[in-house]
């Protein structure tokens, strides 16, 4: 299973801290497509703004491979400091 965490505006708009995706093999972009297909609301939210992706706590491009057991996080551009 792939564990997917959401942060900040994405977490709030999806009303979801964390979800799981079973039997997945592919890129972060393909994982994002699966999540978008969950509902019209998820699609709208995930397409409405720029989404950054981390795999195992490393920022990666959406073309990065995601493997079984990985921790994926999706979030908006960061605004700390």
């Amino acid at each position: 299973m792939i564990k997917v965490k959401f942060f900040a505006a994405l977490r709030e708009r999806l009303d979801c801290n964390e979800t799981g995706v079973e039997n997945f093999q592919g890129t972060a972009h393909e994982l994002l497509d699966i999540l978008k297909s969950r509902s019209t609301q998820w699609r709208a939210t995930l397409e409405a703004q720029q989404v950054l992706c981390a795999v195992n706590q490393q920022l990666v491009p959406l073309s990065a491979e995601v493997n079984e057991g990985d921790e994926v996080a999706l979030f908006p551009p960061v605004t700390g400091g």
Partner: peptide, 11 residues
């Protein structure tokens, strides 16, 4: 780099 890379978000 903290401002553009570290995963913090302000509300």
């Amino acid at each position: 780099f903290l401002k553009t890379k570290a995963p913090f978000w302000k509300k």
